[in-house]
Design a protein around this nucleic acid. Structure first.
Lengths: 128, 128
DNA sequence: AGATTAGTTTACGTTAACGTAAACTTCCCC
DNA sequence: GGGGAAGTTTACGTTAACGTAAACTAATCT
């Protein structure tokens, strides 16, 4: 049972705190392809999910081209065996990338702990 | 006992797989300030650490301006009480940001699991 | 001495990801 | 039926983060 809910462009812009220009830009480069009623864009909940993935990617430092790959993974997608195999590869690559990011975050967290420790030492006038 | 080891620009470029132009750019905008011998740049291990932080930040999607903050935290830094307090605030903000990123990564991981499951289903012809 | 090689400065060029403005259509309200 | 409000297209502008090229210098090799 497909989700029938739809959105117009300003609703999505509000929800995700971006401009309509940004959403149209994602369409310009082929990341979104909403339906049209006349010339007005109608977004499905699938479009909304894609948009959410794009923005999630952005917050993790992904380019829009990288997000394109992520979206392709999300897509239920038709696929012959080879396409599906290469998709599995892509998924695994993404996973590795994310694992790497997890490590980097942990390293930065450690640095922050260090920084805070030193900072508090200075505030306390170097008491144990 | 300070680390006396030094580096020239191409050594750092090699180690981190970036161009010398990139390193000089970071100096242009005030993220690095290596010593000079004549007009040749000499990088300390502190400079190297800063560079590493910048690049780590980049891989996590931080702008160079955000990296500037991170570097300031790393700096042993002089500081009166107010500066130290605001530094502690900055550290806490960073921590929150990183925590948020951790959540996003976990969400994306889940999406990848989903994608892989669907993908394998298709490959197996929908067997349980 | 002449020629590489690695460093430098200066400055214009490029790409991604939108911002911004103009000129237009549709729909709705009073 | 005039005038917002929200949608649209088209197109030029902007910012961050470097790339690229030219023209120079200093040290090193042969």
């Amino acid at each position: 049972m497909p989700d029938q809910h739809t959105y117009n462009i300003s609703q999505l812009a509000q929800e995700f705190d971006i401009t309509t220009r940004t959403i149209r830009h994602y369409e310009d480069i082929g990341l979104l392809a909403p339906d049209r009623k006349g010339q007005t864009r109608i977004y499905s909940s699938g479009d909304r999910t894609k948009l959410k993935l794009i923005l999630r990617g952005k917050r993790l430092g992904f380019s829009l081209e990288q997000s394109r790959n992520i979206i392709e993974m999300y897509d239920p997608a038709s696929g012959n065996k080879e396409q599906l195999q290469s998709l599995l590869q892509g998924i695994e690559q993404q996973r590795q990338h994310l694992k790497h990011q997890l490590e980097e975050i942990n390293l930065l967290m450690t640095d922050l702990d260090e920084a805070e420790r030193i900072c508090r030492e200075q505030l306390n006038g170097n008491q144990p």
